[in-house]
């Protein structure tokens, strides 16, 4: 079993179980190789699907996803409806506002990612659903951006913001 693949699959299992799962497979699992890899894939799949068994978690995760999708669509739409008013913004601020307006899909990706990663309604044990949501938003995010390159950058920004939001959520409040 490739150590890299094993490490990757173990990351899909809750941290509290990783060491035990590794040890259990060594102790009583199939012999090293494809069969052990398949066993690990099965364990990882169960771990990823577990949060979706809970109806309240399903509702929370779906709500976050819908809000994020709405942001992805509405922010560029709102930005397209007008341009920054030079009487309100001036100098560097105007330049920044114009830049932001011109790349509203990136601002939308940041907002959507932060909502997905940091939004309420999903318990910490079910944080995996936030990642699932970010994966599912990749296609809408890519297609709402103009062009392939912008699409890829938008997806990267979305995932980065979701990761950052989830990480910030886990940090203790000082």
């Amino acid at each position: 079993m490739g150590p890299r693949v094993t490490r990757l699959l173990l990351r899909l299992i809750p941290e509290r179980d990783r060491e035990a799962v590794e040890g259990d497979l060594l102790e009583a699992g199939p012999p090293p190789g494809v069969r052990r890899l398949v066993a690990l894939v099965g364990i990882a799949l169960h771990a990823q699907l577990e949060p979706w068994r809970d109806s309240r978690t399903r509702l929370g995760a779906a709500s976050l996803w819908l809000v994020a999708l709405a942001l992805l669509w509405s922010i560029p739409a709102a930005a397209g409806a007008g341009t920054p008013d030079p009487t309100v913004y001036s100098g560097l601020l105007l330049a920044f506002a114009t830049l932001l307006w011109a790349h509203a899909h990136l601002a939308a990706a940041v907002a959507a990612g932060l909502v997905l990663g940091h939004g309420p309604g999903v318990p910490s044990w079910a944080d995996g659903t936030r990642g699932h949501g970010a994966l599912l938003l990749a296609l809408p995010a890519a297609t709402l951006a103009p062009g392939l390159l912008h699409g890829l950058v938008t997806v990267a920004v979305l995932w980065g913001a979701a990761w950052f939001g989830a990480r910030a959520r886990r940090l203790p409040v000082a």
């Binding site: 299992i13 509290r16 179980d17 699992g29 066993a39 099965g42 364990i43 169960h46 771990a47 577990e50």
Partner: peptide
């Protein structure tokens, strides 16, 4: 195995 881990957890 997966069912056992998630049920225990």
């Amino acid at each position: 195995r997966g069912a056992i881990y998630v049920t225990l957890d």
